[in-house]
Computed example of a mutant assay.
Amino acid sequence: MINTLSLADQITLELRADIIGGRLLPGMALVENNLVSAYNASRNTIREALHRLGQEGLTRYVRNKGVMVRRLGVDDVRDLFKVRRALELQAILGSQPLREYQSDRMLEALEAADLAREREDWRSVGTHGLAFHQHVVGLMRSPLLDEFFTNVVAQLRLVFSTAPDEACFQAPWLARDRCIHDWLAEGDRLAAYEAMSLYLDDSEQLLLQLLAATHHP
């Protein structure tokens, strides 16, 4: 298959992946000169990639500082969870019992998260946990929704990065993700739906509390 992505497309995807992987954190500067060197790209190409990240809500321009990875606030979190409920809960409601490849993808993400937890690599735990939720949305088999949700995941990652104790924040979710997988595998959509609905409620409240504590010590 011929790669039709432009260099700006590729750089945008790589920088977004760095955000999802927790390698680019809120408040970090994306220095144009450094990116030109790192990607062996023209200044215009780098500017185009940074502009796209801004359109996706992942970066913002700060006067006298340049382009920085965005810090998200309370309203952003509430909006992200509206989207999560619309997509993840709809994906579950419309799902059939998982096909083997669908189950395998989910289990692969969960097992990677478990291994990261054993290494106490909590940043990776969060990244693999989000991958599980991407596979849930993937049940709708819509490339457009998959692409859109990838951007949602990147924004969520930026919120996770504000946790002062990522171990404490990430630890509770793995067992709950596994339960959701098991309900889906058994074809019990109602149980999976209820588990995911409660999961999203709890996760949103925790993130809102986390942001409140961060901004009001």
Rank of each mutant, 00 (worst) to 15 (best):
T150Y: 04
L208R: 12
P164H: 11
D121N: 10
E108Q: 11
F149P: 05
V74D: 09
A17H: 06
A113Y: 01
H135E: 14
I92D: 05
K82F: 01
A86M: 03
G27W: 02
D202C: 09
R52Q: 12
R157C: 03
C168E: 13
V77F: 14
S6E: 04
M196Q: 15
V36A: 13
D121E: 06
A109Q: 04
V36C: 13
Q90F: 06
N40E: 15
L24N: 09
E120F: 02
D75Y: 09
D79S: 11
D79T: 12
Y199L: 04
A38N: 10
A131W: 00
L107R: 08
S6V: 08
H133M: 10
A91Q: 10
V159E: 12
H215N: 11
D201F: 01
T127F: 04
H215R: 08
T127G: 07
S37I: 09
P26D: 07
T45G: 06
L87M: 13
L156H: 10
R189M: 13
E108A: 05
R52M: 11
H128C: 02
F148N: 01
T12D: 01
G21I: 00
W183R: 14
D165G: 01
H128I: 00
V77W: 15
D146S: 12
A112P: 09
F81D: 06
M1W: 04
L98T: 13
R178I: 01
R141I: 14
A195R: 10
